[in-house]
């Protein structure tokens, strides 16, 4: 069997406390592997360390101990080895307000030194795929929340990354828009054969998107894992997994777990 594309080996991340006295552990000896082409949904309560794991994976922070391995490289120490290899969709759209929708999608390609004319063709194609033809020259303030998030998805896909990292990308949208975008996202990832890590705190969203679900307990460690196949996405199979996730989450004290309505 081929090596996994992403592997965490006993990864721990500690931060200094805000008062400067001592440290707190956000991620504790976390280990997991993700195969190429898999969509893994990471689920957990607020503050359980999902975003820290996300930042470790993106190479934005360095682990205190352990090893993060993505396609044979360390995303932090070999930061530049991942130019164009990772696309990130954040919780909020993070569009540059001074750039039009088209220029926002062009951004990643521009950073990767693509020729302007070619970058524009790619960006226009992605905007069209996400239903934004005609909005290319609009500035973000003129777009709705859903449209802005579509632009940010287009921006992530436009660089043709091998890996997509999504940090609660649809949590700020209304349920109808989120549902449409979720379906669109899964279709695009599968079509392009990408690998995706999808962080969410909505159980149903995790079950709709993921080929596999990992439930985190604080400090980030896997408390439950389930593989989603055709049988487990519907009916009693789905219900059983949902019940199990709820049970696992209820074992942890902390903030409540918002569950998206079943749609």
């Amino acid at each position: 069997m081929a090596d996994p594309l992403i592997r965490f080996r006993e990864v721990t991340k500690e931060f200094s406390r805000p008062d400067g006295v001592g440290t707190f552990t956000a991620v504790d000896r976390l280990s997991f592997a993700i195969e190429k082409g898999e969509i893994v949904a990471v689920l957990g309560k607020t503050g359980c360390g999902k975003s820290t794991m996300f930042n470790l994976l993106a190479g934005l922070i360095e682990p205190t101990s352990g090893k993060v391995d993505v396609a044979g490289h360390d995303p932090f120490s070999e930061f530049n080895a991942f130019r164009g290899k990772m696309g990130i969709v954040f919780q909020n759209d993070r569009l540059m307000p001074w750039r039009t929708a088209l220029d926002n999608v062009v951004l990643g390609l521009e950073i990767l030194d693509a020729k302007r004319a070619e970058a524009e063709i790619v960006a226009r194609r992605w905007l069209a795929r996400l239903g934004l033809s005609g909005n290319e020259n609009d500035y973000p303030h003129a777009l709705s929340g859903g449209m802005r998030q579509r632009v940010s998805i287009a921006r992530a896909f436009a660089v043709e990354p091998d890996i997509l990292l999504c940090d609660e990308p649809f949590s700020s949208l209304d349920e109808m828009t989120a549902r449409d975008l979720r379906a669109e996202f899964v279709r695009l990832v599968k079509q392009a054969g990408k690998t995706a890590v999808f962080i969410t705190h909505h159980i149903n969203e995790a079950m709709d998107v993921g080929d596999r679900i990992m439930v985190f307990h604080r400090p980030a460690r896997i408390a439950y894992e389930a593989r989603m196949d055709a049988a487990s996405r519907e009916g009693s199979g789905r219900q059983a997994i949902q019940d199990e996730i709820l049970k696992v989450l209820s074992l942890e004290t902390g903030e409540g777990m918002p569950a998206a309505p079943v749609v």
Binding site: A58, L60, F79, N80, F82, R83, G84, M86, I88, F90, N92, R94, M96, W98, L107, G108, E110, I111, L112, V159
Partner: peptide, 23 residues
């Protein structure tokens, strides 16, 4: 947020200055 987003594309120092800091 914009800094993190821009950094996720791994820009050079000059590109970061041009696409994010100047605007």
């Amino acid at each position: 947020d914009l800094f993190e987003m821009t950094m996720s594309f791994r820009p050079s120092a000059w590109t970061l200055f041009r696409v994010l800091i100047v605007p």
